[in-house]
Design a protein around this nucleic acid. Sequence first.
RNA 1: GCCCCGAUAGUUCAGUGGAUAGAACGAGCGCCUCCUAAGCGCUAGACACAGGUUCGAUUCCUGUUCGGGGCACCA
Length: 565
Amino acid sequence: MKLSTPIIEAICNSYPEVDVSDFIFSTPPTLELGDMAVPMFPLAKKMRKAPHVIAREIAATIEGNDHIASATATGPYINFKLNRAHVGAGIIDAILKAGKQWGSNASGVGQKVLIEHTSINPNASPHVGRGRCAMIGDSITRLLRFEGYDVEVHYYVNDMGRQIGLLVLIADELENLTFDQILDAYVTANQRAKEDPEFAQRGYDLLARIEDGDPEIQRKFHDVTDLCLRGQLAVLERLNVSYDVFDKESLYINDPRLKLIEHALTETGALFTDEKERRVVDLSKLGYQPEEGRYFVLRRANGSSMYGCRDLVYSMDKQEKGASLTMMVLGEDHKLYAQQMALMLEASGVPAPEVVYYAYILLKDGKMSTRQGKVVLLADFLDQASERARERVAEQFPDLSNEEHDAIAEQVAVSAIRFAVLRVKSNKNVTFDMESALSFQGDTGPYIQYSCARIRSILRKSEVPIPEKSDSLFCVSTDAEWSLLLKLTSFTEVVADAATQRVCAPIANYALELAHTFTSFYHDCPVLTAGDPNVTNMRLLLCCATLQTLSNALHLLGIETPERM
RNA sequence: GCCCCGAUAGUUCAGUGGAUAGAACGAGCGCCUCCUAAGCGCUAGACACAGGUUCGAUUCCUGUUCGGGGCACCA
């Protein structure tokens, strides 16, 4: 039950004319003032009385019960104190009963979602900017699954196009191209295409041939793409990011459904052949206002299709898979493009996907640049972070095996990067600083994992059995315990808001706050050495509930919690 | 030039139409015979600027400045 429900009931009992929508709950600045506050400003207008007068009147009529200990008017607010033992026991029991499901509102049960994310061009090992897309997409997937949605994750493989053509040319020259060489090869290829028109033309020729279905060329494109994709997926897998379905761009080249789209666009008068024999969509015919970005080219003069062509069919294909919601995670550089696609899709009777955008990750000295080698590769970060974490764990737990050291180190490294990226709202540029990301101190993923490890340590050492639920002697004797209980119970609401808004940053920040609240409790309230068996019991329950909540929150972020660290 | 995002402490980030704007890093001072010091406590420090809406704006709106992204044959 929500903490606010008994309060609403109590007020409505005395004031039947008050409507639920008049309530805005907030938290008083300090626990001394109360646990929950209701400001009287909205009611003041309705009842034509000063807020502090109403507060005093209403507070006087409220009687304590199981849930409510007291109601006090403080200026224009009514501050409620809750019955700590009763409410606290209810919170603990709800968490332990729900277990791994604790926090879920089950808002997505029975609904299917198709989400596409990451879809990196197969040309290099992914850097942290690309990783932002993967981590956001993966966390939204986890969040929606947690809420009960049936989610299918798709990855669009850009296995053709000019860049792959150039890469194929280079691969032909160098034999046995490896994944590690691909970035260099890609940079070289682009450089040459710029300086050598003949080389560039050969790349375009390859595109025309693959579109004609030349099997030899298809094989070459496939080999280069596959090499690259496998290398990229290995890195993403280290980050706990996974996909269900891989859709190859090349499969959509000569898709008959494109004709349907072109037909629909022609019907609206938007699709025309321009003076250079290109097939162009005039988006202003579809309701697009600005002059910039008004025209969208579907086919080159020679009839070969542009990227957008295949993407239109791909979007149609995704929509036809029967999901009630289709989503994409895109960099903000794709905003205009996605808007253009949406207009063309809708004109063709295909609903546009819902898009989550993310802004770029910057480095301290500016933008990342693949060409200048100014990037932080995910693999490099993970290697360094893992190495650092390993040294620490090996020193602290020499009894554990090498494999265990490695496993913990990797979990810590992944948590460092995932947390650092996910805690920032996705529409903001993030400045990534290698040193602070590697430090594991302060507001970091490892800090939260550390809190979990401390809880596990207590549970391991407990000589009394861990209780499964609260008993009649449950009591909350300190503010530290009570603050922790209040923090725990707010998880459900955090999840609900995050899921409806398709954001994961609030989950990350919640986990951090909860870890801080737990640590205060940890320092103030001895568990095993409390002296009173009832207090120990209660605190053990509190530890279990906190561990469950932190684990659930971290799971949504794709972060695991080691037993020791 | 036009369009879309953003601007909170020295730095990196939270947050809210209402009671004292939170952390962390960095700086200074403390704390391990005590469940893991990847920790804790204390001190110093911020809502870019100007208007407007409102009983009340850091939050909503407009403008300015600064930063990021985009604007037809790349994908």
